[in-house]
Computed example of a mutant assay.
Amino acid sequence: MIEMKNLRKDFPVRVKAGRFRREKRVLTAVDGVSLSIAAGEMVGYIGPNGAGKSTTLKMLTGVLAPSAGEVSVCGLSPVAQRTRLALRIGVVFGQRSQLWWDLPLRESFRLLKHVYRVPAAEHETRLRRCRELLDLDAFMETPVRQLSLGQRMRGELTAALLHGPEVLFLDEPTIGLDVVSKQAVRSFLGELGRGGDVTLVLTTHDLADIERLCKRLVVIDHGRVVHDGTIEDLHSRYGSRRRLVADLDSPLPPGFALPGAVLSTVEADGHRVTFTLESIAAGAAVAALVNAASVRDLSVIEPDIEDVVARLYRCSITSTAQDGSSAS
């Protein structure tokens, strides 16, 4: 559904090179990205600010022309066939609106039906589904300018889907939303993804969105892909581990060891211990600990993806700095 081969985007910039002089330099925002995304996939595309996420999306949607490389979406060239592509993709940018500011939400949807030339029956079926899943009825007659951010975002998602796109690009769809609105948007996107009818590419700084929605995670940094795989692969590659936290009736015996785990912390005079699980399954670790000590309570804590991604970024920065030193 989406194919990128050595995709590159350069921007000419002028920088100060003296008191009265500026010189032209080239800033590379996307640096040789190659990816294939199959129909029905839900892919998280993440990275720090300035990594090249939004630039990639703009090239995929035909807003920007690549400086080099090849790109196709739905079998079309995004820039050369932008009008045809617009009928087959949906786009939601968290900071921009495709709704008419002064019109009631219902009228925006009605106008979009004519813009995309959607048959009335299809339009009504899709709108009914979105109204049910996103709970739109309470504000369908409200002008867009009077909607809360969460209500407007639900309207934006609906607007992007009314023409039945094959690919949906989402750029920060939950930015600034309250907890209830985030949950509504995530549930809707999860339901959409389980249907398998839409390929979804999601960029976000909210990693909880990625964990709940996407099986595949692509991490970009300094314009280059530094990880492409599952979240589990990411945890494994960058040393993330589950933790077993146990509250004990009495401290562990001196010299106690749990094979395949490391005793990370001991608190409350030895009555609370935390093990980092290195090469042992959580179930086996729990069984071994229960057999060796009197356990009052215990919990298995999943690794925090934000810590893992931060570790990945640090590794990427170190590698880039080393490459620069070698080059010089």
Rank of each mutant, 00 (worst) to 15 (best):
R19M: 09
K53Y: 07
L147V: 07
R311Q: 09
A246I: 05
L312F: 01
F93D: 00
I301C: 03
D31F: 08
R126K: 03
D135Y: 01
Q322C: 11
L133Y: 12
M59D: 05
L105V: 07
E267V: 04
D249W: 07
L133M: 11
E141D: 15
V73T: 08
L60M: 12
Y116N: 01
V266Q: 06
D297W: 14
L162R: 07
A288F: 00
L244W: 04
D31V: 02
V286L: 12
A285N: 11
A38H: 13
S236C: 01
G155Q: 02
V226N: 01
L263K: 04
R241D: 01
A160Y: 02
G283Q: 11
V33I: 14
R88C: 05
V15H: 11
G229F: 09
A208T: 10
V167G: 10
L168W: 07
P143G: 02
G176N: 12
G239S: 01
L35K: 00
A261C: 13
V92I: 10
G94Y: 11
C214F: 02
A282N: 06
V26M: 15
G283Y: 03
R311W: 06
S187M: 05
A285Q: 09
G32R: 01
Q322M: 14
P78F: 03
H163N: 07
C130Y: 06
G229H: 02
R96I: 02
A285Y: 08
V286T: 14
R21W: 14
A293H: 04
E156W: 07
G223Y: 08
K58Y: 00
A287T: 15
A80S: 14
S148A: 05
L213S: 02
I305K: 05
A293D: 05
S148P: 03
A208P: 06
V33T: 02
L312G: 00
H235P: 06
R131P: 05
R242L: 06
G90Y: 05
P173Q: 08
H205R: 08
D307A: 09
P48G: 06
L147I: 12
R237P: 00
R216C: 00
H123N: 08
E232P: 10
V295I: 12
N291M: 09
E41K: 03
G69N: 08
A80V: 02
F109W: 08
A65T: 14
G196E: 11
G150S: 10
K16W: 12
S108R: 05
S294E: 15
R84H: 10
P254G: 10
S72Q: 14
S72V: 09
V79Y: 01
G176R: 11
L161I: 01
E302V: 10
R296H: 12
S108N: 08
